[in-house]
Write a protein that binds this DNA or RNA. Structure first.
Length: 437
DNA sequence: TCACCTATCACCTTTGAATGGA
DNA sequence: ATCCATTCAAAGGTGATAGGTG
């Protein structure tokens, strides 16, 4: 995955968004009635999409307060709260499909591994949506924002703040591979973001979401009405976040209970379950065999059921989920989806080529030699993802100071048309108007 | 010394191509 | 020729662990 910056060096080191272009597309209904301002600790990444749009912003009479931060994860689960939503898409409702799983993790204090190469989230955000116009097309986006300005530390039994957060990292947005798709498509089945990857590599070339380790984050899901990825104008935005999806990013699990939960719930970690060959008992046995020197391979040593010794301590007894609901949508999503409504490029093509978000023509190759994925793998990745890297807010780098209650950054504003996230040359904006490769 | 990060490992699931039968 | 089910291998995801770094 190439970052747009690498694809379009001529555009400079970043993509600053320009004001909406004249000659607004009237393919969408006129501006919805309300503009929204929203209190947020995070300067909205998508604001840069919307700069210059807010002709007459209005604030909500009673902006919803942010949920109080628990003093430490793991001590007490935060009280259940409805998902917070920013709506300029009336009637659109998003619900977290795997809420129970998230709640289970949240009650312990969710941790997400981040690695240089990128690590998937588990649990992943999986949502179902209702209230969309079945005919209209939408984009699903996901981003992750810091919850506060603190760094955290595992103190043996709980997470506690320990100092100030690291400077803000580049904001990136994950675009769901099916985007854009019709409302009917999105409502047909749950929408899973299980392919999102998190990294701590600030120079990450793959477009993964960049996080600091030992910081607390909150995923957000955005729904954007747009005729196509390459549409010049967007027709409304709704943003959602679910309090139970808050997590702390780590490079190695700190809370053993989280490790147990992950092993129990994640099918990829099946090998670490009690009956797996990679459980602690087996690993210890392998180490002993190694120390003693080569031995004939014992047949039937695994899963015989009569192996000596107690249960492995790396598993969560009685909580093994053989059919993991988390992975169920994967197969559904991998199943042939309706052709992307953009006509030419498939969703995958968009995702392999972030530039396609500008409106790449349909004859894009699915992969170019310049892609690192192609170099080390002769097999095409079944899916990748598209990301947008956005300009930091006006505050620049560094965490925003705790926003005063009365100060609301303009968030998702209705009143389109929305400019493309990448202003680029006009040729980038129209499908087929100019080949980019 | 400590906290944190990274590379590597073995095991597992997922994925898609190949194959064969209906 | 088409469809479907099965098989297989490669890719990729997982936590554990040892060693490195500041």
């Amino acid at each position: 995955m190439y970052h747009p910056r690498e694809l379009y060096p001529s555009l400079g080191p970043s993509y600053r968004l320009g004001p909406p272009q004249p000659g607004a597309d009237s393919s969408f209904a006129p501006a919805l009635a309300e503009s929204y301002r929203y209190p947020d600790l995070d300067p909205p990444k998508l604001d840069c999409f919307l700069s210059g749009i807010e002709a007459a912003p209005r604030t909500l009479a009673a902006p919803p307060p942010l949920p109080p931060l628990p003093p430490a994860l793991g001590a007490e689960p935060p009280p259940p709260a409805p998902p917070e939503a920013l709506h300029s898409l009336p009637g659109v409702i998003l619900s977290l499909e795997n809420r129970d799983l998230w709640k289970e993790f949240n009650s312990v204090g969710t941790e997400m591994i981040i690695t240089k190469a990128g690590r998937r989230m588990f649990p992943a955000c999986r949502v179902s949506v209702t209230g969309l116009d079945p005919e209209a097309r939408y984009l699903f986006l996901l981003d992750v924002v810091p919850v506060d300005g603190a760094r955290y530390r595992w103190q043996g039994r709980r997470w506690e703040p320990s100092g100030k957060a690291e400077p803000r990292l580049p904001d990136r947005v994950y675009i769901h591979p099916d985007s854009p798709a019709t409302g009917a498509h999105w409502m047909r089945q749950p929408v899973s973001f299980h392919r999102v990857k998190l990294t701590n590599s600030t120079l990450d070339p793959h477009g993964h979401l960049i996080l600091h380790s030992m910081h607390k984050y909150q995923p957000r899901i955005h729904l954007v009405r747009a005729a196509q990825l390459c549409s010049q104008h967007w027709g409304g935005v709704a943003s959602f976040r679910f309090p139970e999806t808050t997590f702390i990013s780590v490079t190695a699990y700190q809370n053993p209970r989280i490790t147990q939960l992950k092993i129990a719930a994640n099918p990829f970690a099946k090998g670490f379950r009690e009956n797996g060959r990679n459980c602690k008992r087996e690993r210890d046995a392998r180490v002993k065999r190694k120390l003693r020197g080569p031995e004939p391979v014992a047949t039937g040593a695994y899963g015989s059921g009569d192996a000596p010794g107690g249960p492995c301590d790396s598993t969560l007894s009685g909580d093994v989920r053989e059919s993991d609901p988390e992975q169920a949508p994967a197969s559904r999503e991998a199943a042939p989806a309706p052709a992307p409504p953009c006509g030419g490029p498939s969703a995958e093509a968009y995702l392999l080529h972030p530039a396609a978000f500008h409106g790449a023509p349909g004859h894009l190759p699915t992969r170019t030699p310049s892609f690192p994925e192609a170099a080390d793998s002769g097999r095409p990745a079944p899916y990748s993802a598209a990301f947008l890297e956005l300009q930091p807010g006006p505050a620049g780098s560094g965490y925003p100071a705790a926003a005063p209650p009365a100060s609301f950054a303009p968030h998702f504003l209705q009143g389109g048309p929305f400019p493309l996230p990448y202003p680029g040359p006009g040729a980038y904006l129209d499908v087929g108007s100019k080949p980019m490769y």
